[in-house]
Design a protein around this nucleic acid. Structure first.
Length: 174
DNA sequence: CCCTGATTCGC
DNA sequence: GCGAATCAGG
């Protein structure tokens, strides 16, 4: 995909909201987190403030014109990207109010890539059991994405549920 | 292991 | 301009 005006706007918004590059990439769809970061740089958007390092610490620079055998066995086979299974895009374009108030987000689907909208009875031991919506509401459902074998949640929700990571506590509402 | 952003550079 | 590969760090 290419960087259309709309997609760039979305990128700016999400980046400004403090979402991680991978999360932005997931929501935009069709791009990797690297693409997002690369774009952020090209747009000259302010990156994440780093204490002092990470920026200009005399790097060895990558070996130019060198075969550089990529013998990174530990890095092989673990790309990330197509987490979207034909899911519908979020209702992004819609609400784009000019309200200066920044605390009126739905919270629940702000960072959720997609959901299979499974009902309780449809859950299996491999479906993400992350609840979406209000259990007291009729439209309550579960994420339902593959939760693998290491937990009750899919990768994203496992992150949101556990470890506050290090950065952004915003989106990770209780 | 998972993740984060930052940088370089071939395309 | 784009983004994969890579690096550096949590």
């Amino acid at each position: 995909m290419s960087w259309t005006e709309e997609r760039i706007e979305k990128l700016k918004k999400l980046w400004a909201d403090g979402l991680s590059a991978s999360q932005i990439a997931t929501q935009l769809g069709g791009v990797s987190r690297n693409a997002v970061i690369g774009k952020v740089h090209r747009l000259s958007l302010p990156g994440r403030a780093k204490s002092s390092s990470a920026t200009a610490p005399a790097r060895p620079k990558r070996t130019t014109s060198a075969p550089k055998a990529p013998n990174y066995a530990s890095r092989a086979g673990q790309r990330s990207m197509p987490r979207t299974a034909g899911a519908t895009a979020l209702k992004q374009e819609v609400a784009f109010e000019a309200t200066p108030v920044a605390d009126a987000r739905p919270v629940d689907d702000v960072v959720v890539p997609m959901a299979r909208h499974l009902e309780l009875i449809e859950l299996t031991e491999h479906t993400c059991k992350w609840p979406v919506g209000d259990p007291l509401q009729d439209d309550f459902h579960f994420c339902g994405n593959d939760a693998g074998d290491s937990g009750p949640y899919c990768r994203y929700h496992a992150k949101l549920a556990f470890q506050p990571s290090s950065e952004r506590r915003r989106a990770a509402k209780a």
